[in-house]
């Protein structure tokens, strides 16, 4: 089932928590929702899952509008909310049975589904305990189990890996990747490596608006108009080299990295051959380049660029 979101808006008082956003997600796609705190990620997810009503815009899931057939559509959605709220006083198994029944699974299949979820989420050892007695990681697994118990076509996961240890994070990511092959998955997070590791597509939201949409590679390329190059140039006086670098037409900013070592960080202008210019300059002055490397812009820089630019405007 695909999700199509058009001009979605949600206001809390005068503040627009979600401001006219549109995007769509296809089956077999894992969409990463990225954004600073309070950007509107959770609110968008709450609207997609039917917990909250939008003020404007439409949510169309599998060709049907959420407003018209909310209850049929809810059956196709598995949701793991932020902070993973669970009934702490209930035993794990009872809770999963309860969720299965609420989602309308046939009486005969309930136990099969519960058993399968216990296996997939690896909660076999803890299944008879009360949820309140479990560690945070296991609670997160129970949260995932309840989201997937009715085998939904759509999974909405709000920060699914918070509170897990590194091993568990890897496992959960692997699980999400596997599920994402046939399901439509939206997951929100502010852990950037997580998005790169799990998501096919990234949507960056800031102040209720979409500021970027694409794969992690394409986002990186967008930001890579100006490369950052690290160079070490020897056999010359460092201030002279510095000035020479600055005078190159393809260089916008030069910075010392290490005063002793003649290391510089050079930021090139977009669409110029900065590396070649530096090389030619050194040849001309008989300086020797002992190091030159392209410092790759990582997703974090992209993220910071996109989300702070807007704020300062």
């Amino acid at each position: 089932m695909d999700i199509k979101i058009e001009n979605l808006t949600k206001k809390f008082g005068a503040q627009r928590a979600v401001n006219n956003i549109s995007f769509d997600v296809k089956p077999g796609e894992i969409l990463g929702f990225l954004g600073p705190n309070g950007a509107g990620k959770t609110t968008t997810m709450k609207m997609i899952t039917g917990f909250m009503l939008q003020d404007e815009g439409t949510i169309i899931i599998g060709g049907e509008s959420m407003l018209d057939s909310e209850n049929d559509l809810k059956r196709n959605i598995g949701y793991l909310p932020e902070n993973n709220p669970l009934y702490l006083e209930m035993p794990v198994i009872d809770y999963l049975i309860y969720c299965a029944e609420l989602q309308g699974i046939n009486r005969g299949d309930v136990m099969n589904r519960v058993r399968e979820m216990v296996r997939i989420c690896g909660i076999n050892a803890e299944k008879h305990k009360k949820i309140g007695e479990l560690s945070k990681g296991y609670r997160q697994r129970v949260g995932l189990a309840q989201a997937m118990i009715h085998d939904p076509d759509i999974l909405i996961l709000d920060e699914p890996t918070t509170g897990l240890d590194p091993n568990q994070i890897v496992e959960i990511r692997k699980l999400i990747r596997e599920l994402g092959r046939e399901k439509t998955v939206i997951l929100s997070t502010h852990i950037l490596p997580e998005v790169e590791a799990t998501c096919d597509r990234i949507l960056i939201i800031n102040d209720g608006k979409i500021v970027a949409d694409g794969t992690s590679d394409s986002l990186r390329k967008q930001a890579q108009g100006h490369d950052i190059i690290g160079v070490k140039i020897e056999d010359g006086e460092k201030n002279k080299i510095f000035r020479a670098l600055q005078e190159l037409s393809s260089v916008s900013v030069v910075d010392f990295v290490d005063q002793q070592d003649n290391r510089f960080q050079v930021q090139g202008k977009p669409k110029t051959s900065t590396q070649r210019d530096i090389f030619n300059m050194c040849v001309k002055n008989k300086w020797i380049i002992t190091e030159m490397m392209l410092i790759e812009t990582n997703l974090e820089d992209v993220f910071r660029n996109l989300t702070t630019k807007i704020n300062s405007n």
Partner: peptide, 13 residues
Amino acid sequence: SGTIELLLTKAVT
């Protein structure tokens, strides 16, 4: 506890 969110996003009105 926030569980209301989970409950109301299940297939119930």
